[in-house]
């Protein structure tokens, strides 16, 4: 089989359907959303074509600034915690026998694909007064009586890390699975303790992977829209929640679209950075 450039309609035909689908149902909706962000809102839930930047001007308000900085701070915290736990975990995971690895991977994939609705429901049950973990503390004599731990910032953080942890492991997994085992072995032969070898050889060797993963998890955490509503209080609402709220309940599509455009720009810039960090490692 010679791999040359395709010629003529017949050879191009297979790509027509996928290309059409992606352009019509992704590129056009996406462009439309950008267009809507400069449309003018008409009271009554609709909007009409225009070129106004009023929706973007609202970014300058203190309320929006507060939501934005809370979202970014929360996502950063979730990313740091997830990578901090997931990196050593994945490092051990790739050394397990194949069968045990697969069992863990199935478990992690199952949790990763759970609906946010289900994660939110499960965590609020776990932290509730009647069925929650505090009943266990009471039984152990650590607490006088059971109490509800949700909604709270802690509950939200726990739910988000729970959701992000499997994602983090799966992003780290390829890099750690491919890490040359001789690197660490050499360090051990030269007399390093396992802990020292981990921190002085493994971590520096994968520094860019860690940076790239942290950014990817950050973007992932920015996308959470239901957990803040289910596990947090209104002051814990993130940008994603605000976008949904404006689009559906306040029927202000132009403002929702403007915030979405902003979120796209932040996410794309970050993903670009992550790709750059990842690439540097491959060439190094």
């Amino acid at each position: 089989m010679i791999r040359r450039a395709p010629r003529g309609l017949a050879e191009h035909a297979p790509i027509l359907f996928p290309a059409l689908m992606l352009v019509v149902f992704f590129v056009i909706p996406f462009s439309l959303m950008i267009a809507v962000s400069v449309f003018r809102r008409v009271p009554g839930g609709f909007y009409e074509p225009d070129l106004v930047f009023a929706n973007y001007e609202r970014f300058l308000t203190a309320f929006f600034g507060g939501v934005m900085s809370f979202s970014l701070g929360l996502a950063a915290l979730v990313a740091a915690l997830s990578v901090g736990i997931a990196f050593p975990f994945t490092y051990r995971l790739v050394k397990l026998p194949r069968r045990a690895q697969i069992r863990w991977l199935v478990f992690l994939l199952s949790i990763l694909s759970l609906s946010e609705v289900i994660i939110g429901f499960a965590w609020s049950t776990l932290l509730s007064r009647t069925a929650g973990i505090t009943n266990l503390f009471v039984a152990l004599g650590l607490m006088a009586e059971p109490q509800s731990l949700s909604p709270s910032f802690g509950a939200l953080l726990a739910g988000l890390v729970y959701q992000a942890f499997p994602y983090t492991v799966l992003v780290l997994y390829p890099a750690l699975a491919r890490l040359d085992p001789y690197l660490e072995e050499a360090a051990r032969t030269l007399g390093s303790s396992p802990l020292r070898a981990f921190f002085t050889v493994v971590v520096p060797a994968l520094r860019n992977t860690i940076v790239a993963t942290t950014i990817m998890v950050f973007v992932f955490a920015l996308g959470s829209y239901l957990l803040p509503q289910l596990l947090g209080r209104p002051q814990h609402w993130t940008l994603s929640v605000l976008i949904t709220d404006q689009a559906i309940y306040q029927s202000n599509m132009p403002f929702a679209a403007a915030m979405a455009v902003f979120l796209v720009l932040v996410s794309l810039a970050l993903v670009g950075l992550a790709l750059l960090a990842g690439r540097r490692e491959e060439t190094a």
């Binding site: 992704f26 909706p29 959303m33 973007v219 994603s240 599509m253 979405a260 979120l263 996410s267």
Partner: peptide, 24 residues
């Protein structure tokens, strides 16, 4: 380019894709 296009919705926060579909 189409491959990249196919990867994008999965990387961006889902609310963005959702909003795009809603307007479309």
């Amino acid at each position: 380019a189409f491959e990249v296009l196919g990867m994008t919705p999965f990387i961006l926060p889902p609310v963005i894709t959702a909003l795009g579909f809603l307007s479309f």
